[in-house]
Write a protein that binds this DNA or RNA. Structure first.
Length: 598
RNA sequence: GCCCUCGUAGCUCAGUAGGAUAGAGCAUCGGUUUCCUAAACCGAGUGCCACAGGUUCGAUUCCUGUCGAGGGUACCA
């Protein structure tokens, strides 16, 4: 918390300045709250234009209180601070803002040393200490292939897990497979009717998809199929052996396929489970709602009326007695409460399921109300739907049912292929070409999802996902490779005394600021459940570094990082090292690998 | 009908605890490589921040309404 050192110094001095400059008013007002250092520090902000100052403090709110105009207040306070002993900061004032510059040598020295000392831990903190957070993500449906539609939940959730781990949380990544539900009735009907005997036992997910698509195609003509599907699922749920065997077959084919894709993508989970896991817990859940007197019958179905105009009732059981997705999710929540006693339970699921989660959280709250659970023990409010926008293709929604699907693996293969071509052209003697090509391909894909705020719908465009130039994953990776290359090239020891005052141009200054602000970016990303904030920060840092890398001296000659000026080179290479750490760790938080060369 | 999300440059998007002249990338045009990786860098132009009100010293940001796009709205997930 290096930055605080400067902020605290400023806040302290500003508080004193208010007291001395406005003695009479200060006493009259009596309320010292808004003049306290802690209030000031909380209201410090960052100018959009970094050249204005490292941070700023607007004084408009004091205008009425002090009976003085803001520009005058700002100038009086800043003058008073300037007249005091200042090691750390320099202040100036303009139109009601007090702008603060930090002592750059100190900030540079401490930022760089901290980053290098903490290395992979840079940006971490202990704000999540003793807190447990569950993150449910990916959660593909069995018997459907892994499509591009699954990419956002997978990448977002995976990144959030890593971000929370970095902040000291016990973060548990959960893959909750859609391995139960009426869709299996559909699959079973389709399989029994149309399965190709010649490939029996060797079916792939694609074969299952064909059956699924055919079912929906024919069901449009023949409504009876839907009824048959419900019957088959009902049979499955009551333990029919033949259907159980088919279900296990579908499940195994899918899981093997998923695992292969996760391995390629480098996606990790702490617990892979599924809806079927909850089958024996459903009755307990329904009992709990019954005991709480929340259950009623409606049109033959077993429901919980949420007493809310905005929300449809929760269906615990369909008229035929079979359970639904929501029943299973409620059971899952109650199970996880018991098993993990979490502080937060994040559901990284697309926005089209928002009603589902509203229903779920409301039902859980009603259950706790009925059970008179005291506030401090309530768990129902700890669930959060981390929603994200839909993926469209050619401006249309993707629909698995209609077979409109882009296989994630095809996207990955295509990206890796293009990356490999590019390497062959640029760095043909690179050793581990295939490995790096995959890293870059994945970097492009991952970044394309991370560069947009999660609430936005995104239109899948091959040329955007496969772009390696401009604000992209490969740009960050390329920058990392450059940084790594510099460090390799500078093969003198780095432990000598460094004169950080040699770092004095505006490019170096900007880089130090961005390195120093990385921990804040990580914390912000966690607060907003928005990895995009880290992606943005990395792009800014990479751009600042690349600018520095290609900067020219006044004479128009390249100002090289490694030069004959030994002392300057040493200081700069440490700066380079700190940037490398931030880019590498930042990319890690996004789930992207940082190659040493490419 | 009702509910949720989104609406910023030609295109894709940042701007996320309200702040000082609204920023990037792509695309277009021009420049930079005797090379610390040109997947880069430099320069050039573009905006009634959907619209209308409100709150505030100050609104792209918060509130209300309108319009537009997408999603959802009990026996799918």
């Amino acid at each position: 918390m290096l930055e605080n050192k400067f902020k605290e110094d400023f806040a302290q001095k500003a508080a004193e300045a208010f007291k001395s400059q406005y003695q009479d008013k200060y006493k009259e007002i009596g309320d010292e709250q808004v003049f306290s250092a802690s209030f000031i520090i909380a209201n410090i902000e960052k100018p959009k234009d970094p050249s204005k100052g490292r941070f700023a403090f607007p004084v408009f709110r004091y205008g009425k209180l002090l009976g003085d105009n803001p520009p005058s207040i700002a100038s009086k306070i800043s003058e008073a601070i300037s007249n005091s002993e200042n090691q750390l900061i320099t202040v100036t004032s303009i139109v009601g803002f007090i702008n603060v510059q930090t002592n750059f040598e100190i900030e540079a020295s401490e930022t760089i040393k901290t980053a290098i000392r903490q290395d992979a831990k840079y940006g971490s903190s202990d704000i999540g200490k003793n807190k447990k957070i569950l993150v449910e993500y990916s959660s593909p449906n069995i018997a459907k292939p892994f499509g591009i539609g699954h990419i956002r939940t997978t990448i977002l959730g995976h990144s959030l897990r890593r971000i929370f781990l970095k902040l000291g949380y016990e973060a548990i990544g959960l893959n909750y497979l859609g391995d139960w539900g009426t869709q299996f009735g559909k699959m079973i009907v389709a399989y029994k009717k149309w399965a190709d005997d010649s490939i029996a036992g060797k079916e792939t997910v694609e074969d299952l998809l064909k059956l699924y698509v055919r079912f929906h195609g024919e069901a449009e003509e023949n409504e009876d199929l839907e009824t048959q599907a419900r019957d088959e699922f009902k049979k499955l749920e009551s333990g029919d052996a033949e259907n159980k065997a088919l279900w296990e077959k579908f499940r195994e084919i899918s899981i093997n396929e998923f695992q292969r894709v996760y391995d390629v993508m480098g996606i990790e989970f702490d617990w892979i489970t599924g809806e079927a896991f909850l089958n024996d817990k459903m009755e307990t859940t329904i009992d709990a709602f019954e005991k709480a007197n929340l259950v009623s019958q409606s049109d033959g179905a077993t429901i919980v009326d949420l007493k809310d105009d905005q929300l449809p009732p929760v269906l615990l059981k369909k008229a035929d007695g079979a359970t639904l997705y929501l029943t299973r999710d409620l059971s899952g929540y109650l199970y996880r409460v018991k098993e993990y006693n979490f502080d937060e339970m994040l559901y990284v699921v697309a926005v089209n399921q928002s009603v589902h989660f509203q229903q779920m959280f409301k039902a859980l709250a009603m259950l706790e109300d009925a059970q008179f659970v005291p506030d401090e023990n309530r768990m129902s409010s700890k669930g959060k739907h981390i929603e994200f926008g839909m993926i469209k293709f050619g401006d249309k929604m993707m629909s698995t049912r209609k077979g409109h699907i882009i296989f994630l693996e095809d996207v990955i293969n295509e990206a890796a292929k293009l990356a490999k071509e590019k390497i062959a052209e640029k760095t043909p003697d690179l050793e581990n070409i295939d490995e790096v090509a995959l890293q870059i391909g994945l970097g492009a894909i991952f970044y394309s999802q991370m560069s947009v705020r999660r609430q936005k719908d995104v239109n899948f465009k091959w040329e955007e996902v496969l772009s390696f130039e401009g604000e992209t994953g490969p740009y960050l990776q390329y920058t990392h490779a450059r940084l790594s290359s510099l460090i390799r090239k500078f093969n003198s020891p780095m432990d000598a005394e460094i004169d950080f005052s040699l770092l004095d141009n505006k490019e170096e200054k900007r880089i130090v600021e961005l390195v120093a602000d990385f921990p804040q970016a990580v914390a912000d990303a966690a607060r907003m459940y928005e990895p995009n904030m880290i992606a943005n920060h990395l792009i800014e840092l990479a751009a600042a570094f690349n600018k520095f890398y290609q900067r020219k001296n006044a004479d128009g000659k390249p100002d090289k990082i490694i030069s004959d000026n030994k002392e300057l080179s040493k200081a700069r290479i440490l700066l380079v090292k700190s940037v490398q750490i931030v880019i590498r760790e930042g990319l890690y938080l996004l789930g992207i690998k940082a190659p040493e060369a490419m």
